[in-house]
Each structure stands twice: as structure tokens, then as C-alpha cells.
């Protein structure tokens, strides 16, 4: 088995993950792309473990660890996404731009200027507002027993 095959495959997979992270709007799709990148790393770990015949099986053990960490990361990440969704009624990453320069007449950057929200998520106030905590969060907190 030539090591170059899994290595090249891992490189391609990683690049695809990069593209997904950079190009996708939906936060969950971005998380999927992150998983792709993690799997690319896993493939490399396994391939080099096999090639080097590591007596401690460091590569494969580390792969297992990475899988576990990826699962934990995904859990926390999804929790964050859900929290964002509760507050903002959206998970589209290019509309979460509170860090932007405020009150700029031409302030919409190139990334967001040409991508206006075509259909705002159902129910809920306009998510374009600044950090104003939407009404949805507070009653939900109060109402939850």
C-alpha cells in the first residue's frame, strides 16, 4: 500500500472541508465541513500509523481520541447553534455580524452586501438588529418549568 494514496485523499478531503467552512451559510453545514476536516486528519493518522508500524499504536489511538473529541465538540457546537437560534431566529453565519463596523453608510461588506436575507426564518423579529435580545428568549426562560 503506497502511503501517498491515503495522504492525497486526506489532503483532498481537508480542502473540501475548508471550502465548506468558508462557503456555507448554514452553521450546521459549517459544522459538517469541520467534521470532514477532522476525518481527513484521522485518515492521515491511521495511514501513517500503518506505515510506521508504531508499536504503541499511537496513530490509531489518537484517531479514537479525535473521534471522541469530535463528538464532544459537535455536541457543544450544536448546543451553541441552538442557543444562537433561540436568540436570533437564524443560524446563517453571515447575518451574525455584530462585530461589524457600525453606522457605515457603505458598511455592508462584500460578503454580505450581495446576500440579503431572502427569506427570514419563520416567526420572530428582524434578526438584523444589534444585540437586542429578542423577546423569544425571555418568555421561554420564564415559561420553562
Amino acid at each position: 500500500m503506497h502511503v501517498v494514496y491515503p495522504a492525497v485523499l486526506a489532503a483532498l478531503l481537508f480542502s473540501i472541508g475548508v471550502y465548506g467552512v468558508l462557503a456555507r451559510r448554514n452553521t450546521i453545514l459549517v459544522l459538517m465541513s469541520v467534521e470532514l476536516m477532522l476525518n481527513a486528519v484521522n485518515l492521515n493518522l491511521v495511514a501513517f500509523d500503518v506505515w510506521l508500524r508504531d508499536r504503541l499504536h499511537g496513530g490509531q489511538v489518537l484517531t479514537l481520541f479525535v473521534i471522541v473529541i469530535a463528538a464532544a465538540e459537535l455536541g457543544v457546537g450544536l448546543a451553541i447553534v441552538l442557543a444562537v437560534f433561540r436568540n436570533r431566529q437564524t443560524v446563517e453565519i453571515d447575518r451574525l455580524h455584530d462585530l461589524a463596523e457600525p453606522d457605515d453608510p457603505g458598511g455592508e461588506g462584500p460578503a454580505t452586501g450581495d446576500a440579503p436575507p431572502s427569506d427570514p426564518p419563520a416567526g420572530g423579529p428582524s434578526p438584523d438588529g444589534p444585540m437586542a435580545r429578542p423577546q423569544g428568549a425571555v418568555p421561554a426562560r420564564d415559561g420553562a418549568p
Binding site: 462557503a23 448554514n26 446563517e92 454580505t112 446576500a115
Partner: peptide, 10 residues
């Protein structure tokens, strides 16, 4: 609209 305007750069 699953892709953002960042597609080309991506």
C-alpha cells in the same frame, strides 16, 4: 441560499 457570498474566495 445555502452558499454565502464568500464562495469565490472559498
Amino acid at each position: 441560499d445555502l452558499d454565502s457570498g464568500n464562495k469565490v474566495a472559498a
